[in-house]
Every structure is written in C-alpha cells, then in structure tokens.
Amino acid sequence: MGVDRDWEGVRLHVVTGKGGTGKTTVAAALALALASDGRRALLVECEGRQGIARLFDTPPLPYAERKLAVAPGEGMVYGLAIDPEQALLEYLEMYYHLGRPARVLQRVGAIDFATTIAPGLRDVLLTGKVYEATRRRFSGSRPARTAARIVRHDGVPADAYVYDAVVLDAPPTGRITRFLNVNAEVADLARVGPINRQAASIMSLLRSPQTAVHLVTVLEDMPVQETLDGIAELRRQQLPVGAIVINRVQPAHLPTSALRAVARGEVDTAALQRGLAKLGIAAEPSTVDALAAETIDAARTAVRERRLRHTLSQAGRPTYDLPELDIGDIARLYTLAAALREQGAA
C-alpha cells in the first residue's frame, strides 16, 4: 500500500490495555495485519479465557498451535492458548529431560500445587513459552509433542523463523510490567545455572528492539490515565514501549471551533427546525429541543475526547485509530487489520 511499516525488526508484539478497551480484538487484528502478504503470525493467549477462539468462531483452543485464519495475500494466522501446567511439563522435558517423571508429578497434582502457591512461576512459564515460539526456527524445531509442528513452506530458508511475528494478548496494563519483568526477578534469585540462563535470555528478548509493548485504550479518562501510567512504568523497567492504539473512535463531523461553540450550548434551534423541515420532517419544538440537547452532549464528549487525544500525544508514541464497527467478529477483525496496515502498523 506504499505505507512504511513502523515496526520493522520487531518479532514479538505484546498487546495490553485496561479491561474493556478491546485488547483481545486489537491483538487479533494486529496478528492478521502482520500475517499479510504471505507471512506467518502466531497469536498467543495466556489468561485462559479462550477469547481468541470466540473471536475467530472456532472451538476452544487446546495447548497446541492451530491455524486460525488466512490473512490477505495468503498469509497465515495460527493461535495458541497457553496452559501453565502443560507449559511446565514442556519446560521440564525440554531443559531437564524429565518426560515421564514430570507426568507422574502431574498425576499427583504437584504441578498444579506449585503454580498455585507460586503465582510468579505461572508468569515465568507463560513468558517462557512465548520466548520459545518467538525464537523457534525451522532447522531448530524439535519434534513437538505438545504443539503442532509447522511445515516449512516452499522457498523459505531452512533456518528461517517459524513465525514472522508473534502477538501476545497479554494481561491488562495494571499487571503488564510485573508479568513481563518476572524473569528479571528469577534471574536475581537464581544467580547461576540453567534457570538463570533461561530467565536472562527471556529478559534479553523482552528488553530488545525485537519486542514492542502496544497499549490499547479508548478516549475516556480512566483508560487514558492507565495507559500513561503503564507507559511510564514500562519505561522505568526498561521495557520497549510500542504504539498507542485508540479503539472505538467516533468520526469527527465538525471543525474544532464549531464543536466548542456547540459544547458551550450555542445551538440555533430555529435553524435546526428549518433544516428538518427541508428534509420533510415536521418536528415539534420539544423534539427540536431534545435534539439540540443531544447535540450539545455529543459535542461535549467530542471536545473531551480531543483533549484526551492531546494528552496521549504527549507520550510521544505512534498512535493508531480504530473505528467503532457494528459488524460481525470475523468481518470486524479483517476491517481493523486493514486499518492498522493503512496506518503503518504492519
């Protein structure tokens, strides 16, 4: 489309946002955008809600990488719902070769007990699986027991990454920094050995230019403030801040000067009534007054949204607008993906 991509070199896109802002929908649309033109993207869910499956109208995802959708230009989107217990089994088998003993632990409930009493361990396992998927190459892919192996496409170099991009539907902004930074704490606790090396490798990826943490918001006071607080906290922890995605944007119908006048209550009800009459609508004065009141409320909302947009701009990050759409999930995802591509997100 002739638009430069903002995130060249980024392989892991972490999507966070305040609850209710459409974080999962934006993550899915971003995965579709990144998979366009023959690329492969993995969309990962880590909160056990099966939100990805509902969006793509598929059965609940198992702990296995499954094809979800075909992107424009014959790209592919795969999905994975990470289960912490299965991730721990995979970790023990991959790094400690504890295949059968680990499954004995599973049967007696030891793994579930461990992840329950040590919530941080759950986040270690989740980020560890995302790290593995992001770094996996065709030539280095181990025969997968818990995840479907992706067959190499014709013309793809044998040592190429299996996925061109990984999109993580991450926890909300209030928890995102702790979630991403958990391996730094692990590395501090385990000063030597394989656990230290693994944790350090994960943090190296998460703090590198190959990662971007995108924040989803809507133009309301609380989500905007939480977005700004999240950006500040990510920067304090040296985690790479990506874009701000403003979701459910309403179209602007009036220039700023006219909008402010209406917001102050300056509505010519006589002109409004004449305009309705030209359209063949005979409106009572009470109806015209009600329309004027709604117009004033809408203008005040628009003025507030413009103020919040200016506040977000002070964070100095690329910003993408996604419209409010009243269409089905699948059609909405493709429309939002196209909007992201047009703005240079993918």
Rank of each mutant, 00 (worst) to 15 (best):
G2S: 09
G2V: 06
G2I: 07
V3R: 09
E8N: 10
R11W: 05
L12K: 00
H13D: 00
T16E: 01
T16S: 07
K18Q: 09
K18F: 00
G20K: 15
T21E: 06
A27V: 13
L32A: 01
L34A: 05
D37C: 14
R40A: 12
E45F: 09
G48I: 06
Q50V: 14
G51K: 12
T58P: 02
T58A: 10
P59L: 08
P60R: 06
L61Y: 03
A64C: 07
P72R: 03
P72A: 06
M76D: 12
M76Y: 11
M76R: 08
Y78G: 02
G79P: 00
D83G: 02
D83R: 05
Y91I: 01
M94I: 11
G99A: 04
G109E: 03
I111C: 04
A118Y: 13
P119I: 12
L126C: 03
T127G: 04
G128M: 06
R142M: 08
A144Y: 02
A148L: 13
I150D: 05
D154K: 14
G155E: 07
P157F: 09
D164Y: 15
A165I: 06
T173E: 08
G174F: 03
R175T: 05
V186G: 00
A190G: 11
R191C: 03
G193E: 08
N196A: 04
M203V: 06
S208R: 11
V218R: 08
T227Y: 05
G230A: 13
E233C: 01
Q238N: 13
L239E: 00
G242R: 14
I246W: 02
R248P: 00
T256F: 15
S257K: 12
R260H: 13
G265P: 11
V267F: 11
T269V: 04
R274D: 04
G275E: 07
K278C: 10
A282E: 08
S286P: 01
A292W: 09
E294D: 08
I296A: 08
A298Q: 12
A299R: 00
A302V: 13
R306N: 09
R306G: 06
R307T: 06
L308Q: 10
R309E: 11
H310L: 11
S313E: 14
G316P: 06
R317E: 11
L322A: 14
E324A: 15
L333D: 01
L333P: 00
Y334C: 03
R341H: 04
R341L: 04
